[in-house]
Each structure stands twice: as C-alpha cells, then as structure tokens.
C-alpha cells in the first residue's frame, strides 16, 4: 500500500514537472513572437503603387497600397513615433562602393526625391500614431523595402501621408 502511495506521488510529481515544462515552452513561444507583429503582414498585399505614381493618382482619404524604400533624408525615422518616409524605388541612391555613409538620404538625387517621397505613420485602432520606434516595431532599417496599406492624406501642395496599420517588409 505504502509502495503504491509512493508510486502515485512520484507519478504526480512527474506530471507536474511535465506541466511546468510545457508552460515554459509556451511562454518562450510567446516571448519569441515578434513585438509589433499586429502591424506586420505575412503576405504582400497586391496592387501596390509606387510612391511617385501614387502622388499623381491618389486622392485625399482614398485607401492605398504603397511600395517604397525607407529613406529620403539622413534621418528618415521619427524618434519616439512609429513614422518614417519612403522613396520611390525608381530613384537611385548611392551605391555601396561610392563610400557614402548615408545612402538613404539620396543626397545626389535630392530634386528627384521631392516628387517621389511619402510619409508613413503607423496608427492604432483610434487612428493615433503609435508611440514606438518603427525600427523596433516593424524590424526595418534605412533602405528596407516596405509595402504599406492604409488611408492616404493629401494636400494641395502634393504632400502624401499614409496612415497605416498593415505593413509588409520585403526581404531585400
């Protein structure tokens, strides 16, 4: 009888250990889940427009899918908010062998950038910009190619801003 009791206790102990290890595993799975993944899409949206084309065709308030490279100035990211500027892929930037330390500022093509740049801000459900660094939130960096889906904001001066909560990051 005592032997049976001991076996039962050992069995229970083994089960509880098993349960603990299972919890740890599930916690670590949650931990490895990419932060900000609610804004990151797994599949690329169809029908993305280039930035230059969108600046010509898109109306204020229209839904749009836009593709471009993060850049346009030496600091394309906004510190403290998930926002950045993207440039049309047709605008060339300095090649790596040219030795330019910040090729994403398009210093040799500043005139072309003016008509081929858009601002992307990542917004939450209420439409407010997310107070986080976009680099950490979306795992992007300068010259990353992104496809963003959102609502366009245009003004009479041609400025284009897209408020988006869906971003696909292309692997360059």
């Amino acid at each position: 009888m005592r032997m049976l009791l001991c076996l039962a206790m050992v069995g229970l102990g083994a089960m509880s250990v098993g349960c603990e290890s299972s919890e740890v595993a599930s916690e670590s799975q949650v931990g490895t889940e990419t932060p900000g993944s609610q804004f990151v899409l797994d599949t690329e949206p169809d029908g993305a427009l280039a930035v230059g084309e969108a600046r010509q065709a898109i109306e204020d308030g229209q839904d749009v899918t836009l593709v471009g490279l993060i850049g346009g100035s030496s600091e394309p990211f906004v510190d403290g908010l998930a926002a950045f500027t993207i440039v049309d892929a047709k605008v060339p930037y300095c090649a790596a062998d040219e030795g330019c330390p910040t090729p994403w500022d398009y210093c040799c093509e500043s005139e072309a950038v003016k008509d081929n740049i858009a601002t992307i801000k990542i917004v939450d459900e209420s439409g407010s910009p997310v107070a986080a660094d976009a680099r950490e939130l979306l795992h992007v960096k300068e010259l990353s190619t992104v496809v963003v889906k959102g609502k366009a904001k245009r003004d009479d001066l041609g400025n284009l801003t897209v408020a988006s909560s869906e971003v696909f990051v292309r692997q360059n």
Binding site: G72, V78, D79, G80, L81, A83, F84, T85, K114, I117, T119, K121, P129, A131, K153, L157, N159, T161
Partner: peptide, 11 residues
C-alpha cells in the same frame, strides 16, 4: 516627435 512628424509630412 509630433513636431518632427509634422515636418516629415510637410515635405
């Protein structure tokens, strides 16, 4: 950052 964002939007 709000001011910075405004400057980015008004290219």
């Amino acid at each position: 950052a709000e001011v910075e964002l405004f400057c980015k939007e008004r290219t």
